[in-house]
């Protein structure tokens, strides 16, 4: 799950950067990247709280 979260956050950040640099920061691609980022962040916290083995 950690790797899925990392991948989603990475993809979301790349899309966001691309939308800022090459798509005139239009809101639609930005919101797409926001959706991907939120999914990644939620998965990250679910993994942290429920599945991570704590020392």
């Amino acid at each position: 799950m950690e790797k899925i979260a990392t991948a989603l956050i990475f993809i979301g950040a790349i899309i966001w950067g691309y939308s800022i640099l090459f798509m005139e920061a239009r809101w639609k691609p930005q919101m797409l990247s926001a959706a991907i980022l939120i999914t990644g962040i939620v998965i990250a916290h679910v993994w942290e709280e429920l599945f991570r083995e704590k020392r």
């Binding site: 950040a13 966001w16 800022i20 926001a34 939120i38």
Partner: peptide
């Protein structure tokens, strides 16, 4: 949306 997404990123 720039403020929202950049903060999430």
């Amino acid at each position: 949306s720039a403020g929202f997404t950049s903060s999430l990123a």
